[in-house]
């Protein structure tokens, strides 16, 4: 059945393939256009460099009028990412605009990695460390970068 959400997701996918933004990729899962898997590569010259972070994106029939739910599946250490992988990012909540597509969502999350917003912390330890002890913060980030390589599909939430 073609609904506006599904039609739009097909367009988003086509655009992502034809005009892929640097450092992110995403595709619908095999049997469900409403659930996507995505990968964000840690941006160069940041502590997240070389990380290959996996995410899931779940859309509702209200997309693009409502934002999808985006979660990191790979373990993440970041001031704006909760322990369950969900992300505190204004454009995914109250500042969502229907003009965003999957490409814009993923590049925004990619920018968030190196530009955290310590004022709305989802992970207090990470937020505090980011402000008070950058070296320790970077060490912790390095650990999740390395863990992102050996991810083998364990969905268990720590």
């Amino acid at each position: 059945m073609s609904t506006p959400a599904r039609r739009r997701l097909m367009r988003d996918f086509k655009r992502l393939q034809e005009d892929p933004p640097a450092g992110v990729s995403g595709a619908p899962t095999d049997n469900n256009i409403m659930v996507w898997n995505a990968v964000i590569f840690g941006p160069h010259d940041t502590p997240f460099e070389d990380g290959t972070f996996k995410l899931t994106i779940e859309f509702t029939e209200e997309y693009p009028n409502k934002p999808p739910t985006v979660r990191f599946v790979s373990k993440m250490f970041h001031p704006n990412v909760y322990a369950d992988g969900s992300i505190c990012l204004d454009i995914l909540q109250n500042r969502w605009s229907p003009t965003y597509d999957v490409s814009a969502i993923l590049t925004s999350i990619q920018s968030l990695l190196d530009e955290p917003n310590p004022n709305s912390p989802a992970n207090n330890i990470a937020a505090q460390m980011y402000q008070e002890n950058v070296r320790e913060y970077e060490k912790k980030v390095k650990v999740v970068v390395e863990e992102s390589w050996i991810y083998i599909g364990d969905l268990q939430v720590s």
Partner: peptide, 13 residues
């Protein structure tokens, strides 16, 4: 400066 790709989608409808 609005993104052409998504604007087009809404404008078509």
């Amino acid at each position: 400066g609005f993104p052409q790709f998504t604007i087009e989608d809404f404008h078509d409808t």
